Amino acid sequence: VRACLRGCLLCPSRLSCSPLLVMGPRMPTAALPCLSLILLLWSQLPGAQGQEFRFGSCRVKGVALQELWKAFWAVKDTVQAQDNVTSVRLLRREVLQDISDAESCHLIHALLKFYLNTVFKNYHKKIVEFRTTVKSFSTLANSFLVIKSQLQPSEENEMSSIRESAHRRFLLVQRAFKQLDIEAALTKAFGEVDILLSWMEKFYQP
């Protein structure tokens, strides 16, 4: 179990370990048992049972929202103090406002994939400089991984308009991100996790 976890999780005690979330779009078959173990252990955490996210027909169980908030609050001041581009916002009102339940599953899937594969993957090198924040960073990254792994957006043809609408919203985030210097963009994105959590909270059933 310990060996599996060392290969899957961001390890605050081993800053050089390779997290599962940075393996790229195609997850190796050998990593799948590790992901299953993460999901199992996560569901046993205190306060996690009986709580779920409901993004339309997509259900996510075993994640305690208060733990995500706690982890972000621990790094908020450190990260947001590094954000010097105050005139830009990635998660704008046009991205998160007036979203249908069906659309929410597609959008959160795209956003979490973006945070895992782009933001957390690359910002990990930066967060290591602030050693007191590594544990909280790991909690957020692994929580996002658990949530994304349970999302199953519908691929039905009649849902194409919903997928396209969610994709257009996500493109607003991606384009704004690419317009910034990469270091500034990563800091901006990570500093806006509180905006993302506030939106996710609307779909949370304690």
Rank of each mutant, 00 (worst) to 15 (best):
Asn122Gln: 14
Leu35Phe: 04
Ser143Gly: 15
Cys4Met: 10
Trp73His: 10
Ser136Asn: 07
Tyr123Asn: 10
Asp181Trp: 01
Ala166Pro: 14
Glu201Pro: 01
Leu40Phe: 13
Glu183Phe: 13
Asp83Trp: 00
Thr187Ile: 09
Glu156Pro: 00
Leu65Ser: 07
Glu52Phe: 05
Arg93Glu: 10
Ala64Ile: 00
Val193Asn: 00
Gln82Thr: 00
Pro25Asp: 12
Leu145Val: 11
Ser165Tyr: 00
Phe53Cys: 05
Leu145Ser: 12
Phe170Asn: 04
Arg93Trp: 01
Leu37Phe: 02
Val88Thr: 08
Ile127Pro: 09
Arg89Phe: 00
Ile182Ser: 09
Gly191Ile: 03
Cys17Val: 10
Ala30Gln: 11
Met23Cys: 12
Gln66Ala: 14
Leu197Phe: 11
His167Glu: 10
Leu90Trp: 01
Val95Arg: 03
Trp42Asn: 07
Glu52Leu: 15
Arg93Gly: 05
Val128Asn: 01
Leu32Asp: 02
Phe114Ala: 07
Ala102Thr: 09
Arg169Ile: 09
Trp69Asn: 13
Arg163Met: 08
Asp98Asn: 15
Ile182Thr: 13
Gln49Lys: 13
Trp73Thr: 15
Ser57Phe: 09
Lys113Phe: 03
Pro206Phe: 04
Thr29Met: 14
Lys188Ile: 02
Gly50Ala: 10
Leu32Pro: 00
Thr29Ile: 14
Lys202Asp: 11
Ser16Cys: 07
Leu10Met: 10
Leu111Asn: 06
Asn142Cys: 10
Val134Ala: 03
Lys135Ser: 15
Val79Gln: 00
Ser13Phe: 02
Leu116Ala: 02
Gln205Pro: 05
Leu21Asp: 12
Pro33Trp: 00
Phe120Gly: 11
Gly24Met: 02
Ser100Glu: 07
Ser154Phe: 03
Ser57Val: 08
Ile195Ala: 03
Lys202Met: 14
Leu145Met: 05
Arg169His: 06
Gln49Pro: 09
Ser161Glu: 09
Ala102Arg: 06
Gln97Lys: 11
Val85Ala: 03
Leu90Tyr: 03
Thr78Cys: 12
Leu5Gly: 05
Val146Leu: 13
Thr139Phe: 00
Ser165Glu: 09
Pro28Phe: 09
Ala74Glu: 14
Arg175Gln: 12
Arg131Thr: 15
Leu186Phe: 06
Ala102Cys: 13
Asn84Glu: 02
Phe170Met: 08
Trp199Asn: 02
Leu41Asn: 04
Leu171Val: 07
Leu32Arg: 14
Leu5Lys: 01
Thr78Trp: 00
Glu164Asn: 14
His106Ser: 12
Pro25Ser: 15
Phe144Val: 05
Ile108Leu: 04
Ile195Met: 06
Leu65His: 05
Ser154His: 02
Val95Asn: 06
Thr29Gly: 14
Ser154Asn: 01
Gln66Cys: 10
Gly24Asn: 05
Ser160Met: 06
Ala31Asp: 14
Arg2Ile: 13
Leu68Cys: 15
Ser36Trp: 03
Gly7Pro: 02
Ala102Asp: 13
Tyr204Glu: 10
Asp77Gly: 01
Ala3Cys: 06
Leu116Trp: 00
Cys105Ala: 11
Leu45His: 01
Cys17Leu: 03
Pro206Gln: 08
Ile147His: 07
Ala48Arg: 07
